[in-house]
């Protein structure tokens, strides 16, 4: 168990500093909650107002891509959770491997998403002049789909960046004293996972037979 945390400038005690990172990150996650809350309000309104026509749009999503990605992201959360706990325990080798696995799963998610986008585009599922379905609530569903998945993918890419930063810290050889950094990173990564977990039924399970 390595508890020798480096104390940064404004803090007097390690105990206070240890709370600071989770508290700061959770405050930021509250922000994210309201950020996505805004677009979920759009979804709730459109689904309530659009009714059947909205669900008809949702029928066109591909459940295989969606389910595969849910599984991939949940697994990345597992590896991230192990990595974070291992860092705290000072098991740097295990942490390193798990961080690489997390990056791997994150990239896999983006690759699957890319294939899914290719299929969506080839089926003319982008609202506009060549849209496959009728303009109306179905188009609103797809407006939501594109906006929210791209926003989520950007979040995931930022997540890859911060996990990569941990690996870079590890390359310098001081991952163990940065356990709070690892904790903050893990919190963010899990949030990206939670957003997807909520999106899964909203995007892929609506209007199944």
């Amino acid at each position: 168990m390595s508890s020798d945390i480096i104390i940064h400038e404004p803090f007097e005690t390690a105990a206070r500093q240890k709370v600071a990172v989770p508290f700061g990150v959770w405050s930021f996650l509250a922000t994210e909650c309201l950020f996505f809350g805004g677009i979920f309000l759009f979804y709730a309104y459109a689904r309530w107002h659009g009714g059947e026509a909205f669900s008809a749009g949702a029928k066109e999503t591909d459940i295989w891509f969606g389910s595969a990605n849910t599984f991939i992201l949940m697994t990345s959360s597992l590896t991230m959770a192990i990595a974070e706990r291992a860092t705290k325990e000072g098991l740097v080798r295990l942490a390193r491997w798990m961080l690489w696995a997390t990056i791997g799963f994150g990239l896999a998610f983006l690759v699957v998403k890319g294939f899914e986008y290719r299929k969506d585009i080839s089926e003319h599922l982008i609202p506009g002049p060549h849209f496959k379905l009728e303009q109306g609530p179905a188009a609103q569903f797809w407006a939501f789909y594109w906006t929210v998945t791209v926003t989520h993918a950007i979040h995931l890419t930022i997540g890859l960046g911060v996990v990569g930063r941990l690996l870079w810290i590890d390359r310098r050889g001081d991952l163990a004293p940065h356990a709070t950094t690892a904790e903050g990173t893990a919190l963010y990564w899990h949030l990206v996972d939670i957003v997807w977990v909520i999106l899964y039924p909203l995007l892929y399970l609506v209007g199944r037979p």
Binding site: E32, L34, F35
Partner: peptide
């Protein structure tokens, strides 16, 4: 954050024509 999302939705509708 809610302002950020409402502006993001404006950008999505204006720049990409998403209804």
């Amino acid at each position: 954050p809610v302002l950020a999302m409402s502006l993001l939705l404006v950008v999505a509708e204006r720049a990409f024509g998403l209804p």
